[in-house]
Design a protein around this nucleic acid. Structure first.
Lengths: 329, 329
DNA sequence: TATTTTTATGGAATCGATTCCATAAAGAAG
DNA sequence: CTTCTTTATGGAATCGATTCCATAAAAATA
């Protein structure tokens, strides 16, 4: 692998001049420029970004921390990020915590050690050590999906989204509305969506039976299981069920179908997230489209603003969601 | 941001000694070690990977080139890669060509300039310039999904897979079997799967009407459109159709359903790829599971072998596929 | 013609680590 | 009591770029 030194020697100029040619800066005679470009062409020389960034303190790399790498949410987010960042010449360094919270801190440090120009964090559970670590990081930073005070955030209004969906279900004439959520440690998906559901029910003067509120994890089987629990243990059977993710909703649908009931005639189902599945499952699932790709684009935009010198202070960008009416309600 | 020099000064030792402590190498007295660790703790010092790799020529970063970032195939591949690489302390630098072939070469150079320790390429269309570029790269390299001679490859037997599926359909009693493929420039998915289909039909002494062989692109709408073309223009209607991806198959199913026909009674459908959708669509789609995650794991393994000094020569790892029988046939 | 400005170029320091080599004290072996 | 290892430490070169500064020729201006 050729270095700038070799190029300089072969073109009979100094390294300084080669650097000027590469970066199109300073004064270089046409003469010298031609010779240098010639030698670069011949040798297939590619400058070391590594050496460059050691000097310039810029890497053109953005670190992305994901809770799970192989989900629709993550891949849409990354797509949106890449859409904006690639145009500006930034690369994405991916890290995957696999939902292990300690790894978030580990990766934060690792990304710092690699001198990334910025970090995007998609966390699930926010705790104090994590916040402390972020605060002493001093690198352009954007968090998505979960609110962290003092930072740039790209969020959904999970509480209102949940309320909107309940109101929609109510308007469709359902009164016994059940809920499948997740652990409330996940503030956005667990806590806020549940709070939205409960408050909306209260505002509509609808009663909620204990067994109507189930807690699952992020997969189809869990949705199935929650629905079964609900049907097995509830005194009055629900006439509709809202799940905080499409996968949970689809699991619930599976149970309902297996139980010989029809959707939405016997039990209506709503999901959240607008997964691909939701469109093709039968009946097609009514759900909320959160547009993760837009979140990615927005987050990338906020990050670039910080990188380009914007002052570093709390900033919240709310991304709109959209209710997709289909035939499960 | 503290540097090794500051740590050295504060701990009253040389940079050499600090380096020894960090890397646990050479001789360091307990005395000095304690002081250094103390200072590191106090200052929150994180060594610069950048400076380190400039000297050591290792970055612990693997470049991954994907044709599309937000697909099930890609995200499963990355999951498999990450599963193996993260354990060994490697990070993934993602690049996305968005199916623009020229970008493959661009990103190859970019990854080289960043001194990645290895590259994984998931290409769709292989052309000579690309092969030339790869050959002069001289970096540990693995290609997945498409065969490139002389390199480490992780592949499926696309030809045989296609044949197997046709034979399965034939054994189920169908004779008029149609095909929805993609551009043959994509050698694996386009050319080989089509060849497998045609050869299997011939071997079973089955005729193929021209209009039964359609060419689409990689999405649901295209599958719908191909199926419509087929139904509109074929003299004899097919009794079964094999699509080279699940999405195409699902598009075909949509058209069939809309046309008031039933699956599989009127027309049976088979896909390839075992997407999540295939499991939940109705009727559940018979398909081939190619296990992209395993491809990722295998590819990472081959790459690590090369990085750890294995000789660099052609090596082909075939990953098994599995026919998933469901109710669309 | 004298002076300033523009153009062109290279030497050397720098970024933040690793690592070779020299040096010296302490401990073991003869 | 020497001599040879082992242990401990730091100076200085190195990796491959960028960039500040000095220098000088050429061009523009006075």
């Amino acid at each position: 692998m050729a270095t700038i030194k070799e190029i300089a020697e072969r073109a009979k100029v100094s390294r300084t001049t080669v650097s000027r040619v590469i970066n199109n800066s300073g004064y270089v005679s046409e003469e010298a420029k031609k010779r240098v470009l010639q030698v670069i062409e011949e040798t297939g020389y590619i400058p070391s970004e590594n050496a460059k960034s050691l000097r310039t303190k810029k890497t053109k790399v953005i670190g992305v921390i994901l809770p799970k790498i192989s989900t629709e949410t993550s891949s849409r987010l990354v797509k949106g990020l890449d859409h904006v960042l690639a145009k500006e010449g930034y690369q994405i360094l991916l890290t995957n915590t696999n939902l292990e919270t300690e790894k978030e801190i580990e990766y934060l440090r690792l990304l710092k050690s690699r001198h990334v120009d910025g970090i995007i964090l998609s966390a699930t559970i926010i705790n104090q050590p994590l916040i402390d670590e972020i605060n002493q990081l001093n690198i352009p930073f954007v968090t998505v999906g979960q609110y962290i005070s003092g930072l740039a955030n790209v969020l959904f209004d999970d509480y209102q989204a949940s309320k909107d969906m309940v109101n929609y279900i109510v308007n469709k004439g359902y009164k016994q509305i059940a809920f499948i959520g997740v652990d409330e440690k996940d503030r956005s998906v667990g806590y806020l969506r549940k709070a939205g559901y409960l408050d909306a029910m209260k505002e509509n003067h609808l009663l909620v039976e204990d067994s109507w509120v189930q807690k699952g994890i992020f997969d189809v089987e869990s949705g199935y299981h929650c629905m079964k629990q609900m049907m097995d243990f509830s005194k009055q059977k629900p006439s509709a069920v809202l799940a905080v993710t499409d996968r949970l909703a689809i699991g619930a649908m599976q149970y309902i179908k297996e139980a010989g009931l029809s959707i939405p005639a016997d039990i209506a189902v709503a999901g959240m997230g607008a997964s691909e599945l939701s469109k093709f499952i039968s009946p097609a699932l009514t759900t909320l489209d959160f547009s993760m790709e837009e979140v990615g684009r927005e987050a990338a935009g906020l990050l670039l603003e910080q990188i380009n010198g914007e002052i570093y202070h709390e900033k919240i960008k709310m991304v709109k969601y959209r209710l997709i009416e289909r035939s499960s309600i």
